[in-house]
């Protein structure tokens, strides 16, 4: 039996991967119930289940649970989109730090939205979403282009510096547009919270097409991204059109995080940390990393939102703040572990 070692290692990997899937799903269920039950007022599990089953709530607890349903659903959607978009971007750029937040997507979207409110007089959610999508794509492409000029391509440090510098520049522009216009500041504030509390069914409906397309394209491009990881020459040799694979993957990634940012505001570091954790669990196969990052992202965002509600009570702390606090150590860990040459 000459092939035994390979078969066992394959089987071992499959076992680990299935374990990871089970673990992610359980964590997601826990996250959902925590998100429905916990907050400035805790309600019992009975009420949560009652709220889910009954059309008309029978007591206060069930009413609260029903009020928390939209934000929980949006937490799942936004977290999944951010996690998957981070995984896609890291795969395409072959850069461990590619993250919607680091690529300047958030501030780019913010600038476009503010300019839209101030100069074009927009007010409908659908228009915000289009502008935010546009802004995030422009800034992501821009930061990546600047980060990859010169020798060695887009190294993590070049990308991170380009992103944080562009972010700083764009946010000054945002305040310059906003400061003289009190009305704009007011309209913008609802957007800038960086949380999932403000989601309504109506606004979610506007971004769902983008999310669906993004997820489908992302999942279908994962096999070719596996080939890309071997380098462009090998990938071409394996019959992958590298240019097309990159553009498709990038489009899916930007669409996912742009649509989420449009509704949730800036939520950083979910896309950075989740794929790293998932990669530790399931290895380097993108066909596992990309879908699992979506589930992992949903888990992280739901728990961040719950933590924010508990820490901030009686008000609440936006999920984006919590994710930055728990996500930034991932960046530090990646930096500390990598060798000087690779940075």
């Amino acid at each position: 039996m000459s092939n035994t070692p390979i078969t066992t290692s394959k089987r071992g990997k499959l076992k680990r991967q299935s374990l990871a899937v089970v673990f992610c799903v359980i964590a997601l269920l826990l996250g959902v119930s925590a998100s429905l039950a916990l907050g400035s007022r805790q309600i019992s599990l009975d009420d949560v289940i009652g709220g889910l089953i009954h059309d008309v709530p029978e007591n206060l607890g069930e009413t609260i649970a029903q009020k928390r349903i939209p934000r929980t659903v949006f937490g799942i959607l936004a977290g999944a989109a951010l996690g998957m978009s981070g995984a896609l971007m890291q795969a395409i750029t072959r850069n461990p730090l590619a993250d919607p937040g680091i690529l300047g997507v958030n501030t780019g979207a913010a600038l476009f939205v503010v300019v839209g409110i101030a100069f074009l007089g927009i007010s409908a959610p659908a228009q915000y979403i289009l502008l935010a999508l546009l802004g995030s794509s422009v800034s992501a492409v821009f930061v990546y282009a600047i980060g990859s000029i010169g020798g060695k391509g887009a190294t993590p440090v070049k990308l991170a510096l380009a992103g944080s510098a562009t972010g700083a520049a764009l946010s000054s522009l945002v305040s310059a547009v906003m400061l003289p216009r009190a009305a704009v500041m007011d309209a913008f504030r609802f957007w800038q919270v960086g949380g999932i509390g403000g989601a309504t069914w109506e606004s979610m409906r506007a971004i769902i097409p983008f999310l669906v397309v993004g997820v489908i394209v992302g999942i279908f491009s994962s096999p070719s991204l596996n080939a890309l990881a071997l380098g462009d020459d090998v990938a071409t040799g394996l019959g992958v059109r590298t240019g097309r694979a990159r553009i498709l993957g990038a489009a899916a990634g930007v669409m996912l995080c742009g649509a989420t940012t449009a509704l949730a505001g800036p939520i950083a570091f979910v896309g950075l940390m989740v794929p790293h954790v998932i990669r530790l669990a399931v290895g380097v196969d993108q066909r596992w990393i990309i879908p699992l990052s979506a589930i992992g992202g949903a888990v992280v965002l739901l728990f961040s939102d719950v933590i924010g509600r508990l820490l901030g009570s009686p008000g609440e702390l936006e999920a984006g703040i919590v994710t930055a606090f728990i996500g930034a150590p991932t960046l530090i860990a990646v930096a500390a572990r990598s060798k000087a040459r690779e940075i």
Binding site: L97, P156, V157, A160, L161, S164, A268, F269, A324, G327, A328, P329, T330, L331, I332, V334, A335, A336, I343
Partner: peptide, 8 residues
């Protein structure tokens, strides 16, 4: 890189 993380 560490500085950017700590700053965040």
């Amino acid at each position: 890189l560490v500085g950017i993380g700590v700053g965040a």
